[in-house]
Amino acid sequence: MELNKQQLRRVRDRHHRRHGIKPAAARVARDARRFLARSFNVREGRAPYHVIRKRFVSGAQLNGTHLCILIVAMTIACIGLDTNSDIAIVGAMLICPLMGSVLAVAYGVATLDRRLTEQALAGLLLQMAFCLVTSTIYFRLSPIASTTAAITDNSTPTVWDLAIALAGGFAGGLGNTRDQEPATLISGVAVATALMPPLCAAGYGIAAASLPLFLSALYEFGINVVFIALAAEGVLLALRVPLKRDLNDDGIVTDEESRLADELSRKVRRRVIAGTIVFAIPCMLFTAGSIGSASQGVQDGYGVVQTTRELAAVLPGLEDYSVGSEVSANMTGGATDGGAGSATREVVARVSTQRELSDAEKETARRLIRLNVPELTRVEFSSAS
């Protein structure tokens, strides 16, 4: 009796299972999984748990030297933001000690060590206060203090800051758990995540009495702190760092305490994830609005799209409308006399129609354009006829 293809396949599969023979595709998939597991095994090269704890806990310990370095770093950062000096900003971030407190918070949350978490948070808040006071005093005394591009950049939270904080927190958490000393890696993470410049910008907001700038810069700092800690906590959980199971600190760990610690750990993880998602919503909305505005082009800062629709409704035969800036040179004393010159910036709108417009139509067009372009200098009309 001849077997069909489906029956032959079943017979072959039973034979392979009976003799432990795996199909070629299954072998390839299994080997690929093993290769990826070996390549991305973060547990390999892990330092002993007591060494990991010592490294993370040391970041929560403050002393006079620590705070002096913080003030010096903040002063350098203020000078960098005030003068748009990238070198000064990077130098301040290299010596900034804020990262240690953030990683200590992550360790305390991941291991359910309430005392360490409270100590690290208190240290972080104290350092924030020192940074804000230092930057406020600097910008109050600086004769050139102004809203520079660097200050604007560090008070505008976006999703990209969130992504950098996640990547930096992962690298910082991973570096602190390796056998080798993580000093170089942690310095690089401190530069990438930029904890200090937003605090510096917040201090400028206080000095300039600008509440929106202060809140925006402080929120950007908060985004960095929260997502650095979240990523570092994820690394610690992946490495299965032991929980603090002695919940009542009596020196004895009972089975009930161990069970409660496991339940509390899962509950804390869910709350942390939910809280960080909610905290990131304003950042996502701000980024979406920025992308939407940027996609309309620079010219639409003058409301070109909207004004074009309005002009088309009142000017029959409208062909084109545009707005642009022009710079004209004015000579005093005459060019041939070597007189002094000055430059004048003008905002010029151009309206092109199929026919010549009447004076009333031109005046209506000017009024519509000026609604979206208050700084309008003049309107130039042209027609095909």
Rank of each mutant, 00 (worst) to 15 (best):
L230M: 11
D153K: 10
F139K: 01
V327D: 04
A60Q: 06
L67G: 04
I79K: 15
Q306R: 15
I76T: 03
R27S: 15
A232M: 05
I144T: 13
P374R: 03
M196D: 07
P316G: 08
R240A: 14
L243Q: 02
R46L: 15
F381D: 07
E257S: 12
A25R: 11
S39P: 08
V278Y: 03
L247I: 10
V225Q: 00
R370P: 12
A37N: 15
L141M: 11
H15F: 14
S342G: 14
Y138K: 03
V327H: 04
E380W: 09
R269N: 13
I223W: 02
L8Y: 06
G188D: 07
V347L: 13
F286R: 05
L116A: 10
A171H: 11
Q306I: 07
E118W: 15
I369Y: 10
A32Q: 11
R46E: 04
L315E: 05
C200Q: 02
T147L: 10
L36K: 09
R34L: 11
A37Q: 15
A201H: 03
I273A: 13
L230S: 08
E256C: 12
L368W: 06
Q127A: 14
G292Y: 05
I281F: 09
L199T: 02
T117W: 10
A77S: 10
C68M: 13
G173F: 01
R33F: 14
L357Y: 09
D255R: 15
T156W: 02
P143Q: 02
S155H: 01
R12K: 08
A229R: 00
V72S: 10
K267C: 06
V191I: 14
A232V: 04
F286D: 11
V268Y: 09
C96N: 13
L98W: 05
Y219N: 00
E220F: 02
V305E: 08
M74G: 09
L3R: 07
I228G: 07
V298G: 05
R271W: 13
I95S: 10
S293T: 05
K5D: 11
H66I: 14
F279M: 03
A349D: 03
S85E: 10
S385F: 08
I87G: 12
A60D: 00
E361T: 09
P316E: 06
T152V: 15
H16C: 15
E361C: 12
Y204G: 03
I52E: 01
S58D: 08
D82H: 12
D337H: 11
L162N: 01
E118L: 11
Q180V: 00
A190F: 08
T193W: 01
A335P: 04
T152S: 05
G317C: 10
G324E: 07
M128E: 03
V373T: 03
T148G: 09
A202Y: 00
V253L: 11
L213A: 04
R345I: 07
R9N: 09
